[in-house]
Design a binder for these strands. Structure first.
Length: 260
DNA sequence: ATGGCCAATATGATTGGA
């Protein structure tokens, strides 16, 4: 089973490159972020034509997450618990059935948090605390669980081309990294880091300043695996060439293969 | 000169992204 995550930076601008990539990579489940449209505006046709079931939690202009799955959804739930006043479309969770049980997947678009300090950074840290609480509860189920998305967190200096330039940024502040570490330390495996210690593995390159050609990137899109999922991990990869293709998002897809 | 962003919005300037 292949599961991927991709921050598309507008689904309506990414139909062509995304469908082309879906045909090549053939993932079973895809977690999408920053679809930037309401549910009714999601371009379902091209993805349904490729055999995907579609779940959407959209929002006008900003944010928005979705799931594509070749397997039917047993359950779909949107919204991260812990704050009823939070109306950002940043979280969508689904369960699918597999031969020996289920797989639970969440598409996550964690707040950016800039400028820090400030209200936006406070919201980010509170959101991370809520994600930690959610994950702790879900881990009790002892299911294969995959948290996949744009975490807006650079885990370590090896995950950024020029760490000096990111000091003070909400994606790289010590408090952000500490919360990301606290999430991981609940027992989750960072799939890319499970297969490679290499520096220079990035998932985002800014549109500005020829960032991609200089490989001036950061690794912020992650797949975090519960122990029953990590036990089945066969491979993980970052589809870096997508960034150099036609009409690219500023992020690229990241994927895993599970022996499920 | 030694650089140049992109997407959405009742749009032509502003906001957010990271």
């Amino acid at each position: 089973m292949r599961i991927a995550t991709f921050n598309v930076n507008s689904i309506r601008q990414r139909v062509e490159p995304l469908t082309r990539w879906l045909k090549e990579r053939a993932p079973d489940i895809v977690c999408l972020q920053e679809i930037k449209c309401v549910d009714d505006a999601f371009p379902r046709g091209p993805f349904a034509d490729l055999g995907y079931n579609i779940a959407v939690r959209g929002q006008k202009t900003y944010n928005g997450v979705a799931l594509l799955s070749k397997l039917p959804f047993d359950e779909v739930k949107s919204g991260l618990p812990g704050d009823d006043a939070d109306d950002h479309a940043r979280f969508l969770e689904a369960v699918v059935s597999v031969p020996n049980g289920v797989v639970r997947v969440a598409s996550i678009y964690l707040p950016n948090g800039n400028p820090a300090p400030g209200e936006k950074y406070d919201y980010k840290l509170a959101w991370m605390d809520r994600l930690i609480d959610f994950t702790r509860a879900r881990l009790d189920l002892e299911e294969p669980l995959i948290l996949a998305g744009d975490f807006n967190a650079i885990p370590a200096p090896a995950d950024v081309h020029d760490p000096k330039l990111w000091e003070g940024d909400a994606l790289f502040l010590p408090e952000t990294r500490a919360k990301f570490r606290a999430l991981s330390q609940l027992g989750l495996v960072d799939a890319v880091r499970a297969v490679s210690d290499d520096a220079g593995l990035y998932t985002f390159w800014d549109y500005q300043g020829n960032a991609f050609s200089k490989n001036n990137g950061i690794r912020i899109d992650h797949l975090l695996l519960s122990p029953p999922a990590a036990d089945k991990l066969a491979q993980a990869g970052i589809d870096r060439p997508m960034r150099g293709g036609e009409k690219p998002s500023d992020h690229v897809p990241v994927w895993i293969d599970l022996d499920i």
